[in-house]
């Protein structure tokens, strides 16, 4: 009896599923997939009503109605697929794992059918930063010859209104502790060497973000013989935040945008 089973098993060659097929495959899970172009208010209300958990729910923001799908709560019961009239389908391929709980939540505007790219919540941004550097993002601000206008606004990032620390972003005292150099001002001839040395002292991986009109391209000082140029004239620059000076809000969104682009974890 046992030998029969063994004989049968050995007789059938096993087939290892290639990694490419594994990646993103959700066939058989009955995880739903939204076809936003077919979404109507009636369908959205129906699918939200049949969901036994609260994976699917409706939220209204002013005159906007959003359908939220939290994959983290979905048990794959398939009820929404049954009543979804083609607007909700069983997903065969789905990249729904996330570095954070937040990444499992998607949202669509029911009336226009557009997916809502939400402004990053602190948790989500923290998770993205963590996935890139393995810890909080440490920023070293470097003044390469600025007028102190950008510094005043960067200092404001730590005040109770903007509080960059909530995203897991810290300003550190040494380039040796830094992941990102936030460089302000045109690079003056007197600072060029110190700017290069600061960059060299920063461990890999590292990002350089040029801040302000002067940092982006020399600004009104570009023509001066005492100035080498914008930050990119001495360092490889990964991101630019314009403004004279950029407001704290522009700095926050600029830093987060640079992070998102570079970590590549932004959802479609």
């Amino acid at each position: 009896m046992i030998s029969d089973i063994a004989r049968r098993s050995f007789g059938v060659p096993s087939r290892l599923i290639p990694v490419e097929e594994l990646s993103g495959s959700s066939a058989g899970s009955r995880m739903p997939e939204i076809r936003p172009e077919r979404l109507t208010v009636e369908i959205a209300e129906r699918v939200a009503a049949v969901c036994p958990t609260t994976a699917l729910k409706l939220e209204s923001h002013g005159d906007r109605l959003n359908l939220m799908l939290d994959y983290g709560e979905c048990i794959g019961c398939g009820r929404c697929i049954a009543v979804g009239e083609g607007a909700v389908m069983a997903a065969n391929r789905l990249q729904c794992c996330g570095g954070s709980r937040e990444q499992l939540i998607c949202s669509w505007d029911v009336r226009t059918g557009t997916e809502q790219v939400r402004a990053g919540s602190p948790e989500r941004i923290r998770a993205e930063i963590f996935s890139w550097v393995g810890r909080a993002l440490n920023i070293r601000q470097l003044d390469s010859g600025s007028c102190n206008g950008c510094e005043a606004e960067i200092v404001a990032l730590t005040n109770p209104y903007y509080d960059l620390e909530r995203f897991g972003i810290h300003f550190v005292a040494s380039p040796k502790h830094a992941d990102m150099l936030l460089v302000t001002g045109p690079v003056t001839r007197n600072m060029a060497e110190a700017v290069k040395k600061t960059y060299e002292a920063t461990p890999h991986p590292k990002l350089v973000v040029a801040v302000g009109a002067c940092g982006c391209g020399g600004g009104i000082f570009a023509a001066s013989p005492e100035v080498v140029g914008g930050v990119s004239s001495v360092l490889p620059v990964d991101g630019y935040i314009p403004g004279c000076p950029p407001t704290p809000a522009m700095l926050v969104s600029g830093i987060l945008e640079v992070m998102r682009r570079l970590t590549g974890t932004r959802r479609r």
Binding site: D143, G145, S146, C147, G185, P186, T188, R189, N190, M191, A194, I220, F221, A223, S224, P225, E226, V227
Partner: peptide, 21 residues
């Protein structure tokens, strides 16, 4: 003077009301 940008020289030649920035 690490942030010396030759600012006084930059004024020279500009129209008086355009040098405000």
């Amino acid at each position: 003077f690490y942030t010396h940008k030759g600012t006084e020289k930059l004024f020279e030649g500009s129209l008086a009301n355009e040098a405000l920035p």
